[in-house]
């Protein structure tokens, strides 16, 4: 089975894009499944279910969604295998641009909202630099010139990634992306032993385990203080 991880900020168009891709792949006779990782309750699983494909939702709750995914990845893979799927799509939110959920055995797609990213593409960290495919959404509302400027910046951040423009509403570009996914992803037996492409934060402080009080006395564990 081929595993594809899709990461990107909230409301960047991950779900809209994926819906078009899934409908095309089903049309091609493939059998995709979707796992949606979220922090708080979302209704996106219902949208996917309406496409008659195996869907599972994981809520990370109080834990960082990237940590949550890393912990659950092998089991999600097993679930999709049991449903005899050809492709497993894992859609996950990237919240702080600090990490990326990508691994070395998956095809990694990063979704970039052109509207919010053109002003500061350098802020997009490992999510861009460790992706195999960068998909720019909402390019239909920015000028051609800005579209080229943004894709230039992205190609400087990640020279090897394919960059594709997607219109999540009309589906323009999704076929090109779907074919790229079909041709570029590799089938693997399981994800046990695969590696994250970028390490998660090394924080383990009192606040990580539920401390809410502010003050010197409560700053315990591994902390990083600003210098003034």
């Amino acid at each position: 089975m081929n595993t594809i991880i899709i990461g990107g900020g909230p409301s960047s168009g991950k779900t809209s894009m994926l819906l078009h891709i899934i409908s095309y792949m089903t049309h091609c006779g493939l059998k995709p499944s979707v796992c949606k990782i979220d922090c708080i309750k979302s209704n996106d699983d219902l949208i996917y279910k309406s496409m008659n494909i195996p869907v599972i939702q994981g809520l990370s709750d109080s834990i960082c969604p990237d940590h949550f995914l890393a912990t659950n990845l092998p089991d999600i893979f097993m679930w999709s295998t049991k449903n005899s799927c050809t492709h497993l799509f894992i859609e996950t939110a990237g919240l702080c641009n600090r990490c990326a959920p990508f691994t070395d055995k998956t095809l990694n797609i990063c979704v970039i909202d052109s509207m919010s990213s053109i002003k500061s593409p350098e802020k997009l960290g490992p999510l861009v630099t460790t992706a195999d495919i960068i998909s720019m959404t909402k390019t239909d509302v920015i000028s051609q010139a800005e579209r080229e400027v943004l894709s230039y910046h992205l190609s400087k951040l990640n020279p090897t990634a394919e960059i594709i423009c997607i219109n999540g509403l009309s589906g323009f570009g999704s076929q090109t992306l779907a074919n790229l996914i079909i041709n570029k992803s590799n089938s693997i037996e399981d994800l046990e032993g695969s590696k994250l492409k970028y390490p998660m934060p090394s924080a383990n402080c009192a606040y990580c385990v539920g401390e809410i009080r502010i003050g010197k006395d409560y700053q315990q564990g591994m902390i990083n203080k600003m210098s003034f």
């Binding site: 053109i118 239909d140 920015i142 051609q144 080229e148 423009c165």
Partner: peptide, 16 residues
């Protein structure tokens, strides 16, 4: 690679 088709549409705006 940067695009086979240059697009121009009514919905486009400059955002920079």
């Amino acid at each position: 690679r940067s695009g086979f088709i240059a697009h121009l549409s009514q919905n486009m705006n400059y955002i920079l």
